[in-house]
Structure formats: structure tokens, C-alpha cells
Write a protein that binds this DNA or RNA. Structure first.
Length: 849
RNA sequence: GCGGGCGUGAUGGAAUGGUAGACAUAUCGGACUUAAAAUCCGAAGGGCUUACGCCCGUGUGGGUUCGAGUCCCACCGCCCGCACCA
């Protein structure tokens, strides 16, 4: 009997699949279609275990759907534009293009041995001119539809390198290369009008039933619909053109507790005052230091500058409030101005204490509670409070009712109006970088900003660029910028900004339906294949990528590139967890950590015997060296072992920890399955007892049922646990050769989505017809799933005391009688009557004493 | 700071509000072997008890329920995202 040789088996069956072209997707109306997609990778050059886990999950679904009679589309491509290619060019020389395509070749070669059921004929990279040219066409169509526009927006500016920095390139407020303090600077940039669709993107979340609730909730909060009051404070002796300050608040019920007005340093009034007031100019300059992230702004120390200006309270014109410029107010949200109510908002209270401002309690003092000191009084949303007492009302209302009532009250008194606002901002797509999709517009002195003609697409990136200095090489290219105006034909300048790489990934799923079409999509193909039936990727994409894709699908429908049914492009979404590994480190003479690769550590020691510190279960990262290269694992154990392991142990949505012992154990298990099945094939015995056949087949049907449920519900770990149990049952079974072969065949089929190579081999050994990949999925016989006798636990006061064995459909009253007759219950009752007996049929009996 | 999530044996984890710890790893014992490996069989949450059993136990504290790992409230810890990382 031969032994399990993964290398041999895997090469053999991958060839067989290639020969038969069984994963090539072709439009066909005689089968239901199924589109399964994993978030495509960035071509860093090496695949990692996270990729293996992601693609294996998609592969299990794809293979399962093939065997349940679906026409499956399972494509793969590369999210190939982005900063790392430029960083590599700067660090080690070479060209981003060569680096990227070289990485793609490497990664494809590392990925193919996994035996994924991918239609490689549809592969593309977003940096292919054939792809980004179509993206430019989409951009032009969106421009025509009014979905794109230009406006000013702030970027991170490195004053030493004189260049724009990505958030990732800002470390503790400083540029990562120059070390200079970063400033916020305004640039004119292109924007997608995603905010116009805020309401629709929000409403449509309800229909995404097969998305994780947490992702829908995160998107809902991100879109951030709020109902509030917009009104004005009259400005006393304001500078020219400013007689009022418009304010938006979601807490109009606290208006009588207002004690100051805060405006953003970028507010027009602040900018005007800045010109005449050097102290304020200095303060605002200070506010503009640091990065642009919301995190940086929100966690920075709250600073304010008293402008000396005063406003009048709308309900009491004798009541004057000071106007501060404050660093925590964002010009992008609301009107860029707020009123502060220290008694009922912690941030405002901290600010008021710091600058010695009034704290006007509109609730606690009125109700006779403890006055506000260091903690603002913010009631629970559901708490009924007399918020409006300050307005002279006596009605009780909960938080949102109180706010609606306050808005109505203000409106009826001529103070502002209720408005709905969204937190969602328009999507800035301009990037001052080379390795991205060129924005297809030109700047003409006579005609202004002019779209490029479609027949000139793709606007290709020039190859002759250098990365020896900071900034965008397109800006300093000698000739690339020179062009003629598409409108007047005079000399003009090409736009040198490229698109955010999120644009590339916002429509690739649609392109996969017709990757070689000479329009962005082919409507016949898109109509057949869309939507993505199952999308799989990391939770880190819960908001941006998934929201942008939802926006793009709508925009593509509006511009005639997708059918109406595809405006929500992902029918079902699954967010998988990461692959983690322990971190091993020692300390150098300065007590700084020195990291060690897992393969250099055995039983907590290095080769020289010195012990290592172990940090448990962290995300695999090159800098911490806690990485396991899938290529090595496949070389040592085979792809089936890698695939099985990343699916076992942890539920797919949670992190899974890679361990060497786990991989070893997985390999042993697969070898065991191979051995057990080989023995079954050699065996010709009859069953010792006929019941043994019956028992085994019963277990087989239960396994078919449970494994199928597991796959359909993304419970791959549960399916695998069930397969372990079924393998143990099979190995111990005393059934005859026929029943065992039947069970072994089912086992191979149930394993086939996870370990397709081994399954093909077993299928062949067992005499199966054709490829197991094409064989129909086994069906569980319902009648075989239920045992005639069940075990019911008996609880006394909710604690398990004993159990009884009863026929599965015994009536409640009978069960009750038997339960009351058990020794444990008789003893516990001690002659008394039970207070209550709860019988949950088929589940449990609880006797309350 | 804001938004979202997670927390169960030595370890990864299982458990439609219904027997907590399935399945696996590591460990220990046994069989086979000259021996080891491989393989096969078995034990195993903690405590008390000769035993029958009993008590405790799902981050902490409270609550709802006949019954809570699961639902609610508060807290602690860790993770993800925060609009120019992909």
C-alpha cells in the first residue's frame, strides 16, 4: 500500500483540472449562475497565510456550488496601483511597473499550487492600460453626469520635502522621511459626489440581509444621518460681511445652556479675523499643524482662542456669548461652527473649565439634583426627562422626542429650521503620485478644465520617470504634461494627479464579468453574472472599500454600465478573521527587541539554546517576523494541509492562530484518511452484525447533513470538526466492505471542497466516475438523521441532576411523569409537590422546587 | 476622542436562551517495538470525597428568566476602522 504523497497527488490533479478546463466560466442559461469573489490582493510579491485563508474560503464555496449544479464564476486579479511600488523604486531603484508585474508573476506562481478553482483566463491587473483606460472612460461618463467635481481640500504637507504625504507617511505628526512637522494645506482636487447618495446608501443597507450586521451598522454610523437645528447667532460689531454665525446642532434641547460659540480655524470668519490679528493667525497656524486624520484632530489637546467678538442668544437678545476659534471643530461637518453647552457635553465642559466660561445647568439644578462639577450630565437616550423645562415647557420626553420638540419650538419662534445632515463627506480621489490611473482631463488657458476625448484613451503613464527626488514624477516629466486642448486645439497641460487606488477596486468585480471588453463592461455579460453572490474579505474594508463600491455600482448604472439590479453589487458579504502567530523576541544590549522567525525557534529556544520571549497571537507582520510562508508549508506538507488547517480550529470570522504543531497534526490526519480509505478498499469482509452497517450509514447521513450545513453557513470549522468525528467513526466501524466503501466515498466528497486533491485521489481509488470536482453533492436522507430514542437531561432548579432515555416523540405528560419518578427528583422533592415543571420537547426537563 | 467587535480548560475553539468544554493541539497512561518514530487504545476544567456524590466555574460587578457563555446595564482588557495604507 502506497503512502500519502501530497506533492505527487496535487500536481497530478491540478494538471487534470487544467486539461479539463473545468473552472473556465462561460455564460450559459441552462444552469443557475453563482459568482464568488474574494477581495483581490495587492501584489506585494509574497502571498501570506491571510491570502491562503481568504482564497481557500472562497474556493470551498466555489467548489461546493459547482457540485450543487451551479455555473460558477471565480476570478482572480491584482489591485496593482499604489504607494509600495513607488517606495520600492525610491528605496532600491527600478521602475514601479517592473516591480509590480514581477511581483504579480511571483505571486501567481505561489498561488497556483494551492489548487484554487479559479478561472485564470479572466485575470487582469488594475495597472494594465486596458483596465485603467476603461476606468478613465468611466470617469468621463461620471463627469458628464455631474458625479465628479473640483473643490479645495486639505492634505498633509511636508514643508521640508515640499510634497504631499499620505496619512500612512505621517508618524506622530511628522513626515516619515524628513521628520518635519506636517502641516495641513489646501489643494484643488477632484471629488466624487458620494454625499448626494447618502440617503440612498443608508436606506439600501436594510436590504443587505446577507451582510454582517456589524458592517451595516458601521456603514450606517459612517454615513451618520442626523436631525438637528440650523440657526444663527447675531454677531455684535462683526467685521465686514459678517453679521451672524450659522450654527448646526443635534442638541437644540440644550440651547438654553449655551455659554460660548466655537468656530473652525478654517471658518471664513476666522480666516478674515486672522488677517488683522497676528495672535489669532499664530494660533490658527498652530491648529493647522499635525495630520489630517480625524483621530489626530479629535485626540489633540482642545485649544481655543477668544476672538473678543460677542454674539446674541436668539431667545434673549440681552444674553451675550463669546466667540472662540477652536481646533477641534471641523469645517467639513455642519457649518463649521457650534455652540457649546458645558453642562450637558463633556468636551464643552472641559473647554469651559479650561477657559473659565459659564456652566449653565438647564436640567439638574431645576430638578434638584447634584450640580455639574467635573462631569457633564448626559441622560440615557431612553430616559424620560424634562429637557424642555428651560424653554418653559413641562412635557416629559425621551431624548429624540425632546430634540424634535425643541426643533418645532425653535421653528415656531422663528429661530432657524430643522435640517437633516450627513457625516458622509464627498470622496476626494486626487492623488499627487505617479503609480495610479491618470485623471483624463487637461488644463487649457482658454477653455479651463476640459475632459479628454474618449478616443484618446487610455491616457497612458509614461515609462521614463525617475524617483530620485520627492514629489510626483509626472509634474517634472519634460514632455508628458504637454498636450493639446480637446476643445480648442491649442497647447494645454495634462492633469498630473492620478486616482485614489480605491477607485480601481470599486468596480473590478464588474470588470471580471467581461475582462476583455472594449467598454468598461459588456451589458449582456454583466446582466448574466452580476451580482456577486458571495464576497469574502477582511473586516478592515467594512467601510471605505465596500461603501465606495456601492456608490460606484450606482454610478455605473446611472452611466449605463451596469443593470439596475446591480446597484447593490454584493448580495452576500463575509468578513474573515486574520491569521495570527506568536512573536518570538530576544533583547539587545539596549533592551530593544530583536525578532526571530518561527522556523528559528524550537520549544521556546533559539538554535544556540538561548530562550526567547513569546508574545501570544499577533497579526502576522514582516517587521515582527511572526510570519509563516505558505510556500514553505505547501512544500513540506502540501496545499491540502495548508487549506485544511486555515479552515479548522477557528470560526472563519475570527482570527486563527497558525501553529507548527497544528500544521503537523493536519498533515497526519490527511495521511490517516488516506490510510483508512486504502484499507477499506483492500477489505472484503461482511459486517459482523448487520446493525453495524445501519449505524455507519446513519452516521454517514448525519455527517452529510452537518458538513453541508456548515459549508452553507460559513461554519467551515464546524464542518471540519464533524469530518474528524466521522473519520473516527469510520475507522472504528465494524460494518461490512460495502457500507464502508459507501461511507468512504461520502467522506471523500465531503472533504473535496477543503482538500480537493486528496479527495480526487480517493475518488479515483474508490472507482468514482470522472472528477470528484464535477460529481453531484451527496444528499442526506432525512429519515436517517433522527434516532428513535433520545436522552433528556433533567434539571432541578436549573441545575442538571440526571438524565432519562425516552422515545423521541413521547408526549410531554409522559416525559413529566418519568422525570418525576427519577431518584434524583424524588430525593430532592422529599415528598413535597414541585412548584413547576418545564418540559421542552426533545431538549430538557426542568423541575422547579 | 469617535464608531464597531471580541473575552470560555494548559492552548485553538464548540454550544437555535436548554446536559458548558464538541472537535483538535499539547500533556499523561497503555498496546505494538530490542528501542525510538509512526500507528492504535484510553485519561483528562478546578476543588472536596474511599465511593455515591457535592461545591465552584465562560474577563469583573449587577439585572431579566424555570433556566444565561448566549439577553440587558455598568466596568476592565484586547483587536479593527476613522475618509491619502491596501
Amino acid at each position: 500500500m502506497s503512502r500519502y504523497s501530497a506533492a505527487e497527488i496535487e500536481a497530478k490533479w491540478q494538471d487534470a483540472w487544467d486539461q479539463a478546463e473545468i473552472f473556465r466560466a462561460t455564460r450559459s442559461e441552462d444552469k443557475p449562475k453563482y459568482y464568488v469573489l474574494e477581495m483581490f490582493p495587492y501584489p506585494s510579491g509574497r502571498i501570506h497565510m491571510g491570502h491562503v485563508r481568504n482564497y481557500t474560503m472562497g474556493d470551498v464555496i466555489a467548489r461546493y456550488k459547482i457540485s450543487t449544479g451551479h455555473n460558477v464564476l471565480h476570478p482572480m486579479g491584482w489591485d496593482a496601483f499604489g504607494m509600495p511600488a513607488e517606495n520600492a523604486a525610491m528605496a532600491i531603484g527600478g521602475h514601479p511597473k517592473d516591480w509590480t508585474y514581477g511581483n504579480i508573476d511571483d505571486m501567481r506562481a505561489q498561488m497556483k499550487p494551492l489548487g484554487l478553482s479559479i478561472d485564470w483566463s479572466r485575470e487582469f491587473a488594475t495597472c494594465d492600460p486596458e483596465y485603467y483606460g476603461q476606468q478613465q472612460a468611466l470617469f468621463l461618463d461620471m463627469l458628464t453626469e455631474g458625479l465628479v467635481y473640483r473643490k479645495n481640500a486639505v492634505v498633509n504637507w511636508d514643508p521640508v520635502d515640499m510634497t504631499v504625504l499620505a496619512n500612512e507617511q505621517v508618524e506622530q505628526g511628522r513626515g516619515w522621511r524628513s521628520g518635519a512637522l506636517v502641516e495641513r494645506r489646501e489643494l484643488t482636487q477632484w471629488f466624487f459626489k458620494i454625499s448626494d447618495m447618502a440617503e440612498e446608501l443608508l436606506e439600501a443597507l436594510d436590504g443587505l440581509e446577507n451582510w454582517p450586521a456589524k458592517v451595516r451598522l458601521m456603514q450606517e454610523n459612517w454615513i451618520g444621518k442626523s436631525r438637528g437645528l440650523q440657526f444663527a447667532f447675531g454677531l455684535i460689531d462683526g467685521p465686514d460681511g459678517h453679521d451672524r454665525i450659522e450654527v448646526y446642532t443635534t442638541r437644540p434641547d440644550t440651547l438654553m445652556g449655551a455659554s460660548f460659540i466655537g468656530i473652525s480655524p478654517d471658518h471664513p470668519l476666522a480666516k478674515q479675523l486672522e488677517r488683522e490679528n497676528p495672535d489669532l493667525a499664530a494660533f490658527s497656524a498652530e491648529c493647522r499643524k499635525g495630520g489630517t486624520t480625524e483621530e489626530a484632530i479629535e485626540t489633540a489637546e482642545k485649544l481655543g482662542f477668544d476672538t473678543g467678538l460677542r454674539v446674541r442668544h436668539p431667545f434673549d437678545t440681552a444674553w451675550e456669548l463669546p466667540v472662540y476659534v477652536a481646533n477641534f471643530i471641523l469645517m467639513e461637518y455642519g457649518t463649521g461652527a457650534i455652540f457649546g453647552c458645558p453642562a450637558h457635553d463633556q468636551r464643552d465642559l472641559d473647554f469651559a473649565r479650561k477657559y473659565g466660561l459659564d456652566v449653565i445647568d438647564t436640567f439638574v439644578a431645576l430638578e434638584g439634583g447634584t450640580p455639574v462639577e467635573d462631569e457633564a450630565f448626559v441622560p440615557q437616550k431612553s430616559e424620560k426627562v424634562r429637557w424642555l423645562k428651560a424653554f418653559g415647557w413641562d412635557d416629559e420626553a425621551t431624548g429624540s422626542e425632546a430634540i424634535d420638540a425643541a426643533i418645532a419650538f425653535c421653528e415656531s419662534n422663528g429661530v432657524g429650521q430643522g435640517v437633516t445632515k450627513f457625516r458622509l463627506r464627498d470622496w476626494g480621489l486626487s492623488r499627487q503620485r505617479y503609480w495610479g490611473c491618470p485623471i483624463p482631463v487637461v488644463h487649457c488657458d482658454a477653455c479651463g478644465v476640459v475632459p479628454e476625448k474618449k478616443e484618446n484613451l487610455p491616457i497612458r503613464l509614461p515609462d521614463d520617470v525617475t524617483f530620485d527626488q520627492p514629489g510626483n514624477p509626472l509634474d517634472r516629466h519634460p514632455t508628458w504634461r504637454d498636450c493639446t486642448c480637446p476643445t480648442c486645439g491649442k497647447p494645454a497641460r495634462r492633469e498630473t494627479d492620478t486616482m485614489d487606488t480605491f477607485v480601481d477596486s470599486s468596480w473590478y468585480f464588474a470588470r471580471f464579468t467581461a475582462p476583455r471588453a472594449d467598454t468598461p463592461t459588456d451589458m449582456a455579460e454583466a446582466n448574466y453574472w452580476m451580482n456577486v453572490d458571495q464576497y469574502i474579505g477582511g473586516i478592515e474594508h467594512a467601510i471605505l472599500h465596500l461603501l465606495y463600491s456601492r456608490f460606484f455600482a450606482r454610478a455605473m448604472h446611472q452611466t449605463g454600465h451596469l443593470p439596475a439590479k446591480a446597484i447593490e453589487p454584493f448580495d452576500a458579504l463575509f468578513t474573515q478573521g486574520m491569521v495570527t502567530h506568536e512573536i518570538y523576541l530576544t533583547r539587545d544590549e539596549n533592551n530593544r527587541p530583536v525578532y526571530h522567525l518561527p522556523e528559528d525557534v524550537t520549544d521556546g529556544r533559539l538554535a544556540d539554546g538561548s530562550p526567547v520571549e513569546i508574545i501570544p497571537s499577533a497579526k502576522m507582520s514582516k517587521s515582527k517576523k511572526n510570519v509563516v510562508d505558505p510556500v514553505n508549508i505547501i512544500g513540506a506538507y502540501g496545499a491540502d494541509t495548508a487549506r485544511w488547517f486555515v479552515l479548522s480550529d477557528s470560526p472563519p470570522e475570527r482570527d486563527v492562530e497558525w501553529t507548527a504543531s497544528g500544521a503537523e497534526a493536519t498533515f497526519k490526519h490527511l495521511a490517516r484518511v488516506y490510510r483508512i480509505v486504502s484499507e477499506i478498499i483492500a477489505d472484503t469482509s461482511e459486517a459482523a452484525q448487520p446493525e453495524a452497517d445501519e449505524d455507519l450509514l446513519r452516521e454517514m447521513h448525519k455527517a452529510i447533513h452537518d458538513v453541508t450545513v456548515g459549508i452553507e453557513s460559513f461554519g467551515f470549522n464546524a464542518s471540519i470538526a464533524r469530518l474528524y468525528a466521522f473519520t473516527n467513526t469510520l475507522s472504528k466501524s465494524t460494518a461490512g466492505a460495502g457500507a464502508k466503501r459507501q461511507a468512504a466515498t461520502a467522506l471523500a466528497q465531503l472533504m473535496s471542497p477543503m482538500t480537493p486533491h486528496l479527495a480526487e485521489e480517493l475518488w479515483q481509488l474508490l472507482g468514482g466516475t470522472g472528477l470528484i470536482a464535477n460529481a453531484p453533492w451527496p444528499q442526506a436522507d432525512e429519515a436517517m438523521l433522527v434516532d428513535d430514542t433520545i436522552t433528556l437531561p433533567i434539571q432541578i432548579n436549573g441545575k442538571r441532576r440526571t438524565e432519562i432515555s425516552v422515545p423521541k416523540d413521547m408526549p410531554k405528560s409522559e416525559v413529566e411523569k418519568i422525570a418525576l419518578g427519577t431518584d434524583a427528583v424524588v430525593k430532592a422533592l422529599d415528598g413535597a409537590q414541585p412548584k413547576k415543571i418545564i418540559v421542552v420537547p426533545g431538549r430538557i426537563v426542568n423541575v422547579v422546587i
